[in-house]
């Protein structure tokens, strides 16, 4: 294992903890610091932004978070961890088939997790939940101390452009529809435009803040209209969501590669005993990633 291996003296201290495992634990310690830094930062920001007021945080409906997907993902990860434990046990008892099965199932479940995550991302993008261009629902309790923010900012401009585009497409695609939702959509569209009427009169367009409130009002009545909601602290929420899950997914991806290597080794003639370290470390890492998810899941899906 190290320089001590060839030294015969039994009276001197010999480390019993394998280096590879020690290093993996140390690495996990750094990972703990990484995620605790991230989570602490996020908690601080959330606390600062909402001041403990849950109304200042987007609801699950607004963000299209589906807890059952998160729960499913949690189950997938927990089961995959169990699979890896099973594979390790099988490996220790020389059961190569069991090993392959355990790693294989773990790999599949992990990939399924990533697949669901990717689908969720796509869903978020589809609903216009992209950090930096979400309109904020201005709450009266919220501090907006810069007067100049009453002016159209670049993020708001993007959001308004998206609203207009979506609504125009909707109106264009449903030429025969006459229902109240279409009336609302057209009215909203008109109030977004800088308003020069045909007779030359000028009508003030909704200010971005008003447009945001109007969007939420319409969505409450007609949830099917392609209008992007204005979320309280929506940009911060999106930043959290994508950063936390993104970094976690990156770790998961690395774990998948490790599992794949274990799997390939198991298939190509079994894992020799000296590679037990590798398999154990893989499992250790995977359990850690699993553990991180157990922190993220309630933070993102439940609270």
């Amino acid at each position: 294992m190290n320089a001590l291996a060839d030294y015969p003296s039994p009276t001197l201290e010999v480390p019993t903890f394998p280096s590879a495992k020690l290093a993996m634990w140390l690495f996990l310690a750094t990972e703990v610091m990484l995620f605790s830094g991230l989570l602490a930062g996020c908690y601080v920001l959330k606390a600062g932004a909402t001041g403990g007021n849950p109304n200042l945080w987007p609801t699950r409906e607004q963000t299209h978070i589906q807890p059952w997907l998160g729960t499913l993902n949690t189950i997938l990860l927990v089961v995959s961890s169990l699979c890896l434990s099973f594979a390790l046990n099988a490996l220790k008892s020389g059961n190569i088939k069991g090993t392959m099965g355990g790693f294989g199932l773990g790999f599949v479940l992990g990939s399924a997790f990533l697949g669901i995550k990717a689908w969720e991302y796509r869903d978020k993008f589809h609903h216009g939940l992209i950090p930096g261009s979400i309109a904020e629902a201005i709450n009266n309790n919220q501090t907006h101390d810069s007067k100049r923010m009453q002016m159209l900012s670049s993020g708001q401009r993007v959001w308004l452009d998206l609203q207009r585009g979506q609504l125009e497409k909707y109106v264009h695609d449903h030429p025969n529809q006459q229902g109240p939702d279409m009336v609302a959509a057209k009215a909203f569209l008109a109030s977004l435009r800088d308003g020069k009427k045909a007779n030359g009169d000028y009508i003030r367009p909704l200010s971005p803040v008003e447009a945001a409130q109007e969007a939420n009002r319409i969505l409450e009545k007609y949830p099917d209209l392609p209008v992007y909601p204005a979320l309280p602290n929506g940009n911060l929420w999106a930043s959290f969501y994508f950063t936390l899950t993104g970094i976690h997914a990156t770790h998961l991806f690395a774990g998948l590669i490790l599992i794949a290597i274990c799997l390939i080794r198991a298939i190509s003639g079994g894992l020799p005993p000296e590679n037990l370290d590798f398999a154990e470390n893989t499992a250790l890492y995977w359990h850690f990633v699993d553990l991180v998810w157990l922190f993220l899941f309630p933070l993102i899906y439940l609270i």
Partner: peptide, 21 residues
């Protein structure tokens, strides 16, 4: 993302960033 962008955003010269948080 808006980790370091204050809620009201910023004004540089005559343009504004988006809102932050």
């Amino acid at each position: 993302t808006v980790f370091f962008l204050p809620p009201a955003g910023l004004a540089f010269g005559n343009w504004q960033t988006g809102t932050g948080g």
